[in-house]
Simulated scan of single mutants.
Amino acid sequence: MSRYPLELTGDDTPMVRFMNVTKRYGELTVLDHLDLDVAEGEMVTIIGPSGSGKTTVLRMLMTLETINEGVIYVDGKPLTHMEKNGALVPASPKYLRRMRSQIGMCFQHFNLFPHMTALGNCMEGPVQVLGMPKAEARARSEELLELVGMADKMDQHPSRLSGGQQQRVAIARALAMRPKVMLFDEVTSALDPEVIGEVTNVIRDLVDAHNLTMLMVTHQMGFAKDISDRVCFFYDGAIEEQGAPEDLFGNPQRERTQQFLSAVKEAD
């Protein structure tokens, strides 16, 4: 691992860096020597056909998947590896847990604790993982539930909430951990069309109000165009094309990008 730096330094250090990252499942290469930087405060959306590797990017950042080659860095420090005797070695479970606490993720399925209220769901991580005093965790959770428009539902259990409401609680729960990076994986795809707007509005508000670094995988091209600083089109385990939303959606340069966007437009 000597060709990879032990730490990234300098004023232009990205919040997230994938450096030559490869992920394989047996003979299948899902990500092929991926290089991707995400600046602090940047909102990057990943689009592409099924099997292109886009969700794998998020799963590797959440350390739900190991990588076969390369290194991922978060805020200048290696995520997938750690320093030992002046070299990078695969990260230990303890190191991974510490680094993972900087990253929040909202999944397609909300994964709320069914036996806890909305407030309890938000408080659990800060108290159990961060060791935050309960009073502080409660105050922060109440503030975040208000931010996502769920202040009047904080004493309700998930079974009493709609899908859109559950997803908004899931966003608040992830934010309660004070992450430096937020990941959104198809957060609207399990929702009814009439409640998609309430979740996308919450994400818009987060983009406007907080300097969070965000990566989002979505199949909603209009939302991606509206909210992103940059859009990356993945194809066959690599970035086929990337750019500002107005450029990528308005004037795609690569034939595969053109074909994908045309197919998505026809499906809509």
Rank of each mutant, 00 (worst) to 15 (best):
L248E: 04
V74L: 00
P114Y: 14
Q259V: 15
Y4Q: 00
T117N: 05
A87W: 09
E146M: 15
K54S: 08
T22S: 03
P14T: 06
H81M: 02
E143K: 11
V127R: 00
S162W: 04
E241I: 08
M132G: 11
A118N: 13
D208H: 15
E246L: 07
D35C: 11
G26M: 05
S189M: 08
R204F: 13
P179D: 01
E124D: 06
V38F: 04
P90N: 07
D185G: 00
H109K: 15
V169Q: 02
D35E: 11
P49D: 03
G26W: 06
L8G: 02
E136F: 14
Q220S: 15
L119D: 02
Q102I: 07
R100W: 01
M154V: 15
P245T: 14
F260P: 00
G86C: 07
G243F: 06
P193E: 12
N201E: 10
I239E: 00
P114S: 07
P90E: 00
E7L: 07
R3V: 15
T257K: 01
P49K: 03
I227T: 09
E266Q: 13
G10Y: 04
P5N: 05
K54F: 08
G250R: 06
P158T: 08
G48E: 03
V71A: 05
G131M: 09
M62V: 12
R254K: 14
G86L: 06
M132C: 12
D155A: 11
I227Q: 04
P5S: 06
T213H: 03
G41L: 09
M214Y: 05
T63S: 02
G76I: 01
L248N: 06
V187G: 01
A174V: 10
A267L: 15
M1L: 12
N68V: 07
M116A: 09
F233H: 00
P126E: 03
E246S: 09
T66I: 08
G243D: 05
V74N: 03
T218M: 03
T13M: 13
L119S: 04
T188G: 06
S162F: 10
S2E: 11
L206H: 02
E27Q: 14
Y235G: 02
Q242T: 14
C122H: 02
L212Q: 02
S52F: 06
V89T: 05
S189V: 12
H210C: 12
L212T: 13
G10W: 03
V129R: 08
F184Y: 09
A174H: 04
C232F: 09
T9P: 12
V169H: 01
N111W: 11
I103P: 03
S162P: 04
F234C: 00
E146W: 12
A87Q: 13
H109F: 13
Q242M: 09
L130V: 11
K153E: 11
A267E: 15
K265S: 10
E7A: 08
M150Q: 11
P193G: 08
Q259I: 14
I239F: 01
D226I: 13
G243L: 05
P90D: 05
G125R: 08
K134Y: 10
M216V: 12
S50Q: 12
M62D: 12
I196E: 10
T55N: 08
